[in-house]
């Protein structure tokens, strides 16, 4: 491909005009998010991008070439920051597409030969389109990473293991159990068993809306894993509908201790660990 020295030169000579027009068109665009980004920051980003663009356009290569690496790295930076600020894909891509008009204006006013004019406009529009698509893709990627991270954070938040008494832990499950969440629940519970040396863990499913075969199997696996480590599990909070579902599904819970309420499970756990609860007369405060 021939070098685009002339194109680069044009942009360099008219640098200030292009930058002014470009920033203006970005500021006037409906996609501008003034509340998310300061004007000075936008101006600075535009200035830096334009100078990197001028250097890379001189190579005459497509954006897949190494000559465009600085431009792409810079786009990577600003896309990441815009995703974190909450920009939409089109808002981010406007940064690139709004550069078309100012560049075309400069090319049109400088070049008189129609053949040259068309060639340079075509080259510029192709480049900017490709850069725009690249930004869209980056935006998408960044969003996926954010979602992935949030999912992981949510998983960690949603599974507290509490110690009820010496040797007794409880895991109150709330909400729908899917296999990813159950794996985290399982690991958390088993890890806490090791840390506390608890002999009994109560898994309370009062807050679980439905139990299907998969969830029941996950529960059974947790119980089996705890047993391998040397701890017993009690499942409590089984509502009548869930008891019916479990039987209809043909899930065998006969090897597992089950109780209707957390209180019942706690009493059994106390008995097994050799502790007991007694009521004592409460002395009346004297008036």
């Amino acid at each position: 491909m021939e070098k685009r020295t002339k194109l680069a030169e044009m942009v360099r000579n008219q640098h200030d005009v292009i930058l002014k027009d470009w920033v203006e068109s970005q500021l006037n665009a409906t996609t501008l998010r003034r509340e998310l980004m300061k004007e000075s920051e936008l101006r600075e980003q535009s200035r830096e991008f334009l100078s990197l663009y001028t250097q890379s356009v001189q190579s005459g290569e497509g954006i897949g070439d190494a000559a465009w690496k600085p431009v792409k790295d810079f786009l990577g930076q600003i896309t990441r920051s815009r995703v974190l600020l909450g920009f939409t894909p089109s808002e981010t891509a406007t940064f690139i597409f709004s550069l078309k008009q100012p560049l075309f204006d400069v090319i049109r006013s400088t070049l008189k030969d129609p053949k040259e004019l068309v060639a340079d406009i075509w080259a510029t529009t192709t480049l900017l389109d490709n850069l725009g698509l690249y930004v869209m893709e980056l935006h998408q990627q960044n969003r996926e990473e954010v979602i992935h991270r949030q999912q992981e954070e949510l998983l960690e938040l949603s599974t507290p293991v509490v110690q009820l008494f010496e040797n007794i832990l409880a895991l109150p499950l709330i909400g729908t159990l899917d296999s990813a969440r159950t794996q985290v629940v399982m690991e958390n519970l088993l890890q806490r068993i090791v840390e506390t040396g608890a002999m009994i863990a109560i898994i309370d499913i009062t807050g679980v809306p439905t139990v299907d075969t998969l969830v029941a199997q996950h529960l059974l696996k947790t119980v089996a894993a705890a047993r391998l480590m040397g701890a017993d599990c009690i499942i409590s909070g089984i509502r009548p509908q869930i008891a019916q579902t479990i039987v209809h599904l043909g899930v065998d819970l006969s090897e597992v201790t089950t109780k209707a309420t957390l209180a019942d499970a706690f009493m059994i756990a106390l008995q097994r660990t050799g502790a007991s609860v007694t009521k004592s007369a409460v002395s009346q405060p004297k008036g």
Binding site: E187, L228, G230
Partner: peptide, 28 residues
């Protein structure tokens, strides 16, 4: 009595389909 099986090992064994029936276990 088998003692001290790690959580990750226990989870994997169960998934593998081996629950060691008839073997007593303890935490330590």
């Amino acid at each position: 009595v088998v003692v001290g099986m790690r959580p990750a090992v226990a989870i994997t064994l169960v998934e593998l389909g081996l629950s060691l029936p008839g073997v007593r276990t303890a935490l330590n």
